[in-house]
């Protein structure tokens, strides 16, 4: 036999159509295998589903709170307390001046007497007020910033400018609590991110472990497939599809959980919003949560399976 530098090559199947067909068959076969043990499959998928639903749901919640606070942010008003010496006519002029500013949507004057009336009506100290010999309340111009003034910082700058008017004693923005709320949601958002990373790791481990057990169960099968010439890719494939299906099932369960939670929360939230004269209602799923579940789930499943297969398949060798 002549010795050649180059060995005769092997015939490999490189037809993309048959390749796709084999993949489709393999994916269905994996699904079929999973469906043959529905209880354990569903249990694994449910664990993945909960792990996916938690960060997604929390993210959705934070997102909603943020939207709520930003809508308050936008409608923040500035109260301009006029100096004591300013007469009613001067107050009206100040209101007009302020109203002409481009960054002001609306300016409303509450004269000293109107303020007193309101105080009498609402405070319950009406009779005490009668005892005073003069009206202690200043005139107030309520300013609603134009929609161009969006964030809390801009509103703050605007208040500082208004403070410069001679007639205005104090320009007060009550935004602090909105800022605090923003800071809190920011912190919670970070916590949700950390949670999401941890739970993604958990999903990897769950799928990885499930696939590892499956590899152990099918040890002799893998051995025989290797004996009759199965490539590593061929042997890997059903396990990868299994991971993918677990991830997809988990994502479907997560989606169901989050949608159910939204449905259950919708009524109470609307009632709460009603108490604050707000038309706020819970948002439907935002794209990040949705993609996090539907893409992240299968991707994590696949990655978990890949890790397990990479570690354990090489150890199975026929003898």
């Amino acid at each position: 036999m002549a010795r050649r530098a180059r060995q005769p090559g092997f015939r490999r199947n490189r037809n993309p159509v048959t390749w796709l067909l084999r993949h489709a068959q393999m994916s269905l076969a994996s699904l079929g295998r999973l469906s043959r043990s529905p209880v354990s499959t569903l249990m694994t998928a449910a664990v993945i589903g909960i792990a996916l639903a938690l960060p997604s749901g929390l993210h959705l919640l934070v997102d909603n709170v943020r939207q709520l606070s930003s809508s308050w942010d936008g409608s923040a008003s500035i109260s301009l307390f006029l100096a004591d010496a300013v007469s009613d006519e001067q107050a009206a002029t100040v209101r007009e001046q302020v109203a002409r500013r481009p960054d002001v949507a609306e300016a409303q004057l509450i004269s000293r007497s109107a303020a007193l009336d309101e105080f009498r009506r609402l405070s319950g100290f009406g009779q005490a007020i009668e005892l005073l010999d003069h009206n202690p309340l200043p005139a107030v111009v309520l300013v609603r910033p134009a929609p161009t003034v969006q964030d809390a910082d801009a509103v703050g700058r605007m208040a500082a400018e208004l403070q410069n008017y001679r007639e205005i004693e104090l320009a007060q923005v009550d935004l602090q609590w909105v800022e605090r709320l923003g800071a809190i949601t920011g912190a919670i958002e970070r916590a949700v991110l950390i949670l999401a990373v941890l739970l993604a790791g958990a999903v990897l481990l769950i799928v990885g472990n499930t696939v590892r057990l499956e590899i152990q169960n099918r040890h002799s099968e893998i051995e025989i497939v290797k004996l009759v010439g199965g490539t590593d890719a061929f042997i890997r494939r059903p396990f990868l599809y299994e991971g993918l299906w677990y991830g997809l099932l988990g994502a479907a369960i997560a989606l169901t959980l989050v949608l159910t939670a939204l449905y259950l929360l919708d009524g109470p939230v609307e009632r709460l919003a009603g108490l604050y004269q707000s038309t706020f209602s819970l948002d439907v799923l935002d794209p990040i949560s949705l993609f996090g579940m539907l893409i992240g789930g299968p991707a994590l499943g696949l990655a978990g399976a890949w890790l397990a297969v990479g570690r354990h398949l090489a150890q199975v060798q026929p003898e």
């Binding site: 060995q7 092997f10 010439g229 590593d232 061929f234």
Partner: peptide
Amino acid sequence: NKLRARDVPYHRR
């Protein structure tokens, strides 16, 4: 001896 690991399945066929 010169067969790479990825060729082994094709050899076994």
